[in-house]
């Protein structure tokens, strides 16, 4: 699993790559926490375009990230979910909890100012 970040229009974009599964979930949590402690703004979009596998542990890590962001009064949304991750979000009802957008641009525009 790889995680890279950038900022677009004052919104942090977190790009995840690879599988976010049992073996990677702790690394995702730790990497996100480390990065988020120094992040300039609590507005975050997670780009899932290159996430090919997601399981319950991985989803737990994403929920943890969302909780961190919301605790700081920010907002976390997801963009570019691939079919597999989309189905996982669907069957676990996560789509009811998170905002999901087709593209990163859409997600950035939808972030509250």
């Amino acid at each position: 699993m790889n995680m890279t970040t950038e900022t677009i229009n004052g919104v942090n974009i977190v790009r995840l790559e690879g599988s976010v599964m049992l073996g990677d979930a702790d690394a995702v949590r730790a990497a996100f926490r480390r990065w988020f402690e120094q992040a300039s703004t609590p507005r975050v979009v997670v780009d899932m375009e290159k996430v090919d596998q997601l399981d319950s542990a991985g989803l737990g890590a994403l929920v943890y990230a969302a909780q961190l962001v919301r605790d700081r009064g920010g907002d976390l949304s997801f963009a570019c979910l691939q079919k597999k991750a989309r189905l996982v979000f669907e069957i676990t009802r996560s789509y009811k909890v998170f905002d999901i957008y087709a593209t990163v641009d859409e997600a950035v525009r939808a972030q509250p100012a």
Partner: peptide, 15 residues
């Protein structure tokens, strides 16, 4: 997904 025939293997026995 029967609409487009996409099949994914859910690698999580909890689900």
């Amino acid at each position: 997904d029967p609409a487009d025939g996409t099949a994914v293997d859910i690698e999580d026995t909890h689900w």
